[in-house]
C-alpha cells in the first residue's frame, strides 16, 4: 500500500468514523437520561440534511443549516412530548418498539415530502472537483469540514456536561432520577432536552456530511446501525468511548476495502455488533459491573 493510498483510507475512515461517533453520542445522551435506546437517531441525521437542502432554496447555506438544526431539534422535542413523555415507567421492549415505530414514521414522512431521490447540499468550500493535499492524499475540503465540525461538537458537548448547570442537571438525571427530582430538577424536561440535544447534533452531522455522502430519505437506518454499534462498542453511555469506538469502526471499514469487496462494507459493522454482543456486551471499554446494572 502506498503512502498516498494509506492516507486516503485513513482520512475516509476518520471522516465516517466521526460521523458514526456523533450518532453514537446521540444514542448515549438519550440512553443516559432515560435508559432508552432511541432507534430513530439516524432519522435525525437524515432530517437535518433534507431540511437544510430544502431551505437552501430560500436561505444562504449557513443560515439554512442553522435553521435546519433548530427545526430538527424541535422535531426531537415533539417526538419526545408526543410519544415518550406520557409513558409511566415503560418496559425496555416497549420503548424499543416505540422508537422503531417513530423511525419508520419519520422515514415514511420524509419519503412523502422529499421523494426517494438522492439529494445533497452544495460543498461548503469549492465544488466537487476541488481538492486539497492532506498527508500526501488529495481530498475534498469537505472532509476537513466534517472532521472539524464533528470534533468541535464533541468538545462542546463535553464542556456542556462538565461546566454548565443544564449539563449537570442532565448528568444528575442519568445518575439517579429520584435524587434529581428531590433536588428540584424536572426529569421530564431533562428528557426532552436530551432528545433535542441528540436531534441537534445528529442534524448538524447530517448537514456537513451531505455533500460527500449524499442524503436520501432512508439513510437513517444504516446510520442508526453504525451508531448503535459504536455506542455498544464504547460501552453504552460514555461519550468519549463512543468517539474512540466510532473512529475504530470508521477505520476498520475504510481499510477493509483493500481486503474485502466494497459490497461487504456494511456487513462489517453488523458482524462487529454481533461479536460484541456475544463476547463483550459491556463494550470494549465499559466495565462489567456497569453492564450488570443495565436493564438488558
Amino acid at each position: 500500500m502506498t503512502l498516498e493510498l494509506f492516507s486516503q483510507y485513513l482520512l475516509a475512515g476518520v471522516t465516517y468514523g466521526i460521523i458514526y461517533a456523533i450518532v453514537g453520542i446521540g444514542f448515549n445522551i438519550i440512553y443516559n437520561t432515560t435508559g432508552i435506546i432511541n432507534f430513530a437517531q439516524g432519522e435525525f441525521v437524515m432530517l437535518g440534511g433534507m431540511t437544510a437542502i430544502s431551505l437552501t432554496q430560500w436561505l444562504p447555506l449557513p443560515l439554512a443549516i442553522g435553521a435546519a438544526v433548530v427545526v430538527v431539534m424541535l422535531i426531537g422535542a415533539l417526538v419526545e412530548i408526543l410519544f415518550i413523555r406520557w409513558l409511566d415507567r415503560p418496559s425496555v421492549l416497549r420503548m424499543i418498539i416505540i422508537t422503531i415505530g417513530i423511525s419508520i414514521l419519520i422515514r415514511e414522512a420524509a419519503l412523502h415530502i422529499w421523494g426517494d431521490g438522492v439529494r445533497s447540499l452544495p460543498y461548503f468550500a469549492g465544488n466537487e472537483i476541488t481538492t486539497i493535499q492532506v498527508l500526501g492524499a488529495r481530498v475534498s475540503p469537505q472532509v476537513l469540514w466534517v472532521i472539524g465540525v464533528c470534533a468541535v461538537m464533541v468538545l462542546a458537548l463535553s464542556l456542556f456536561f462538565k461546566y454548565t448547570l443544564q449539563g449537570k442537571k442532565m448528568q444528575a438525571c442519568a445518575a439517579n432520577r429520584m435524587a434529581a427530582t428531590l433536588c428540584g430538577i424536572s426529569t421530564k424536561n431533562m428528557v426532552t432536552l436530551s432528545f433535542m440535544l441528540s436531534a441537534g447534533i445528529g442534524a448538524l452531522a447530517g448537514c456537513v456530511m451531505s455533500p460527500i455522502t449524499y442524503t436520501q430519505y432512508d439513510i437513517g437506518t444504516g446510520l442508526a446501525i453504525k451508531g448503535f454499534t459504536v455506542a455498544i462498542l464504547g460501552g453504552l453511555g460514555s461519550s468519549m468511548a463512543a468517539v474512540t469506538a466510532g473512529l475504530l469502526l470508521g477505520l476498520i471499514e475504510a481499510f477493509s476495502v483493500s481486503v474485502v469487496p466494497l459490497a461487504f462494507q456494511d456487513a462489517i459493522a453488523i458482524t462487529l455488533l454481533l461479536a460484541i454482543l456475544f463476547f463483550r456486551p459491556h463494550g470494549l471499554f465499559g466495565s462489567k459491573d456497569a453492564a450488570g446494572l443495565k436493564e438488558f
Binding site: 449537570k168 442537571k169 448528568q171 444528575a172 442519568a174 445518575a175 439517579n176 435524587a179 434529581a180 430538577i185
Partner: peptide, 15 residues
C-alpha cells in the same frame, strides 16, 4: 441516593 457518578462537590452544588 447520591449521584454516584459525580463528585462530592458536584452533588452539593446540585443540592
Amino acid at each position: 441516593q447520591v449521584f454516584a457518578t459525580m463528585s462530592v462537590r458536584e452533588n452539593l452544588v446540585l443540592g
